[in-house]
Structures are given as C-alpha cells and as structure tokens.
Simulated scan of single mutants.
Amino acid sequence: MDRVLSGQLQPHQRCDPKTLAQEPGVTRTGFYPRRNADGSVRPGPYQHLAREFQRRLAALQQAGTIADPRGAQIERLKHEVDQLGAHLARQESVINQLTEFKQRAVSQLAAQHAEIEHLRSASLGPTAVVRSVPTPHRPRL
C-alpha cells in the first residue's frame, strides 16, 4: 500500500484498488463486501485494507499530493491545454485585427487608384496635348 500511495507504479498502473490488489496478487473482489446465499452481507477478506487505502489516498489528495503519476501528468496536460487555448484565442484576435487592417488598406488603395484615374481622365480631355518631359542626358562612363 505504501509503494502504491508513494507513486511507485508501472507506466500502465494507477493509484487505485485494482493496482493495490495486483501488487500482492490477490483478487480485487476481496476489497468489497460479499453476499451470502441468504442475502445477508459479510465483509470481504481485504475490505479493511480498501477502506484504509481510500482514507490515506483522500488524505494525500487533501494535502495537495498527487500519488498517481498519471494523475499528475493529466493535471499538467490540462493546465497546458488551458494555456494553449488562451494563446490560440490571442492569436485569433491578432489575425482578425490584421485581416480588418488589410481590408481597410485595400479599400483605401482602391479608392485612391479610382481618384487618380478620375483625375487623369479629367485633365486629359479630347483637346489635351501630352508632351514628354525631356530628361537630361548623362554621358556613359
């Protein structure tokens, strides 16, 4: 019982009556009451051990000690899932903000482009003459 409660378990085991029964090689049914043929109830041969195990396990849990390494791993993973969920929510918020910014920027660019096109067409009427602006000639080296 001490070994199971201290967390010295095989990877597939848990801190429970089933593992407690496996250690000495007894059946788990010995931890529970039995019924006689007449319907009366008699205690199982190891029922007192099961009660003691449950009492000590509850005391450890109240003290904040997790005797089951799987239980500790589950708690750690739950905490990690919570942190990852919060991180994901923050990332989704940033993505939404950036998407809105992109939509506004594209709309503004489209409006500016339309304005430029309008101004070009207004200044280039049917009688407008377009001339090239001469550029200074630079000698090649």
Rank of each mutant, 00 (worst) to 15 (best):
D2K: 12
R3N: 12
L5R: 08
L5Y: 13
L5I: 12
S6K: 13
S6T: 14
Q8T: 10
L9D: 01
L9S: 04
L9M: 14
L9N: 11
Q10I: 10
Q10P: 04
P11M: 10
P11W: 10
H12W: 12
H12M: 10
R14Q: 07
D16N: 12
P17V: 12
K18M: 09
K18F: 03
K18A: 07
T19Y: 01
L20A: 02
Q22F: 02
E23W: 09
E23R: 09
P24H: 01
V26L: 00
V26A: 00
R28S: 02
G30F: 03
G30Y: 03
P33G: 05
R34K: 14
R35M: 15
A37P: 01
S40C: 13
V41F: 05
P43C: 05
G44Y: 04
P45Y: 01
Y46I: 01
Q47W: 04
H48C: 01
E52R: 07
R55I: 13
R56C: 13
L60C: 08
Q61Y: 06
A63W: 12
A63G: 14
A63C: 11
T65K: 09
A67Y: 05
A67L: 14
A67K: 06
D68Y: 08
P69M: 13
P69Y: 06
R70M: 06
G71R: 05
A72K: 15
A72C: 11
A72H: 15
Q73Y: 15
I74M: 11
I74E: 14
E75D: 13
K78H: 14
K78F: 13
H79G: 10
E80P: 04
V81E: 13
V81S: 12
Q83G: 07
G85W: 04
A86F: 12
A86E: 15
A86D: 14
H87C: 10
H87W: 10
L88Y: 03
L88T: 12
A89H: 04
A89G: 03
R90D: 04
R90K: 08
R90H: 02
Q91C: 06
E92H: 11
E92K: 14
S93A: 14
S93Q: 05
V94N: 00
I95F: 01
N96Q: 03
N96S: 12
N96I: 02
Q97W: 03
L98P: 00
T99H: 10
E100W: 08
Q103G: 01
Q103V: 11
R104L: 13
A105N: 05
A105C: 03
A105H: 00
S107R: 08
S107H: 06
Q108S: 01
Q108W: 00
Q108N: 00
A110R: 01
A110P: 00
A110Y: 01
A110E: 07
A110L: 06
A111C: 02
A111P: 05
Q112M: 07
Q112T: 03
Q112P: 00
H113W: 02
H118P: 08
L119N: 03
R120H: 09
S121F: 05
S123D: 07
L124E: 03
G125R: 08
P126K: 01
V129R: 00
V129L: 02
V130N: 02
R131E: 04
R131C: 00
R131D: 02
R131K: 05
P134L: 05
T135K: 06
P136W: 13
P136L: 14
H137S: 08
P139A: 14
P139R: 11
P139L: 06
P139S: 09
P139M: 04
P139T: 12
R140C: 02
L141G: 07
